[in-house]
Simulated assay, not measured.
Amino acid sequence: MSSPNESRPHEEQPSVVIRDRRRIDPETLQPREPDEETPEREGGEHVLGTPDRAGALEAQLAERTAELRRVEAEYENYRKQVQHDQAAISEIATAKVLDSLLPVLDAIDRARGLGEVNGSLWAVAEALEERLADLGLERVGTAGEPFDPARHEAVGHQVSDDVDTPVCTAVVRPGYQVGTRLLRPAQVSVTEPPDQAPPAATAPDS
């Protein structure tokens, strides 16, 4: 009597295939290349090394990089605008303070002209003018410079053949500016050539 095992036909066992999906080689400790024979995972999801996935990542990286550059450019423009506004506000505030001190400088100039500034008063006047110059205050108007209606106010006028263009002959009262901001124009006496002098007024017919 045969045993049950002998009566059954021999069945072949299915071969077992073991695939090592580890990304790091355990022997060399180096990254492995993706398996070209199995480019997709179960369910059709692309693995990282496939061209479609790599292209999508590159496009996403380019988009994020462009967005970052736009943000950086906007921030740089904002920073420059803030600095410009702060400088303008500071210049306006400084100009207001210096403008209020112009009568003091005028008084010092008059006292100098009368010879009343000497000794300790001279030192105080010099220190004040140096300090105001450090804050950006500059005098406007010098005898001999070309007349500029934007910077000079003509309070005297004469004609001479010795000049070719209008020239500031004398400074009656100096002007002042801070940077490009004119606090007040200089009052000057102007000398002009004959061809630029205004025509003489004619008496009306009787």
Results as ranks from 00 to 15, higher is better:
residue 125 A to G: 03
residue 137 L to M: 02
residue 84 H to G: 11
residue 78 Y to S: 12
residue 204 P to H: 10
residue 94 T to Q: 00
residue 203 A to L: 12
residue 13 Q to K: 05
residue 80 K to P: 02
residue 125 A to R: 01
residue 125 A to S: 11
residue 115 G to F: 07
residue 153 E to K: 12
residue 149 P to G: 05
residue 7 S to T: 09
residue 157 H to F: 10
residue 88 A to P: 10
residue 63 E to P: 02
residue 63 E to I: 07
residue 44 G to L: 05
residue 112 R to G: 07
residue 158 Q to M: 14
residue 26 P to H: 08
residue 89 I to T: 08
residue 171 V to S: 02
residue 148 D to M: 06
residue 124 V to K: 10
residue 170 A to Q: 09
residue 197 A to M: 15
residue 54 A to R: 14
residue 152 H to N: 03
residue 106 D to I: 06
residue 181 R to A: 13
residue 186 A to G: 00
residue 147 F to D: 02
residue 15 S to D: 10
residue 15 S to T: 15
residue 23 R to Q: 09
residue 155 V to E: 09
residue 43 G to R: 11
residue 85 D to F: 03
residue 137 L to P: 01
residue 93 A to D: 05
residue 170 A to N: 13
residue 115 G to R: 05
residue 22 R to W: 02
residue 47 V to N: 04
residue 138 E to M: 12
residue 59 A to Y: 10
residue 62 A to D: 09
residue 56 A to V: 06
residue 67 E to S: 00
residue 132 L to F: 11
residue 65 T to E: 14
residue 201 A to K: 15
residue 113 G to R: 08
residue 8 R to G: 09
residue 171 V to T: 05
residue 46 H to K: 15
residue 138 E to H: 13
residue 77 N to V: 13
residue 171 V to N: 01
residue 120 S to E: 15
residue 196 Q to A: 14
residue 120 S to C: 12
residue 18 I to D: 15
residue 17 V to Q: 13
residue 158 Q to G: 14
residue 108 I to C: 02
residue 52 D to Q: 13
residue 128 L to G: 02
residue 16 V to E: 11
residue 60 Q to F: 15
residue 159 V to D: 07
residue 69 R to N: 02
residue 26 P to S: 08
residue 75 Y to M: 09
residue 139 R to G: 04
residue 145 E to Q: 07
residue 105 L to Q: 10
residue 106 D to V: 06
residue 23 R to V: 03
residue 59 A to H: 04
residue 148 D to K: 06
residue 64 R to E: 12
residue 146 P to N: 03
residue 74 E to I: 00
residue 198 P to C: 03
residue 126 E to L: 13
residue 58 E to I: 12
residue 193 P to W: 10
residue 167 V to Y: 02
residue 172 V to W: 05
residue 75 Y to W: 12
residue 1 M to E: 15
residue 156 G to W: 06
residue 7 S to I: 10
residue 14 P to S: 01
residue 98 L to V: 05
residue 54 A to P: 05
residue 178 V to W: 01
residue 69 R to D: 06
residue 74 E to M: 00
residue 87 A to H: 00
residue 167 V to H: 08
residue 8 R to Q: 15
residue 138 E to G: 11
residue 19 R to L: 05
residue 190 V to Y: 02
residue 140 V to R: 00
residue 56 A to F: 12
residue 192 E to Q: 05
residue 138 E to I: 11
residue 12 E to H: 01
residue 143 A to Q: 10
residue 112 R to Y: 08
residue 13 Q to H: 07
residue 171 V to L: 03
residue 40 E to L: 13
residue 119 G to N: 10
residue 96 K to I: 05
residue 76 E to M: 08
residue 98 L to D: 06
residue 136 G to A: 12
residue 54 A to V: 12
residue 159 V to G: 04
residue 20 D to Y: 01
residue 28 T to P: 04
residue 132 L to C: 01
residue 49 G to V: 05
residue 101 L to G: 01
residue 30 Q to D: 00
residue 25 D to W: 10
residue 60 Q to V: 13
residue 106 D to Q: 08
residue 44 G to E: 06
residue 132 L to T: 02
residue 169 T to Q: 07
residue 11 E to V: 13
residue 158 Q to R: 14
residue 47 V to D: 08
residue 10 H to R: 14
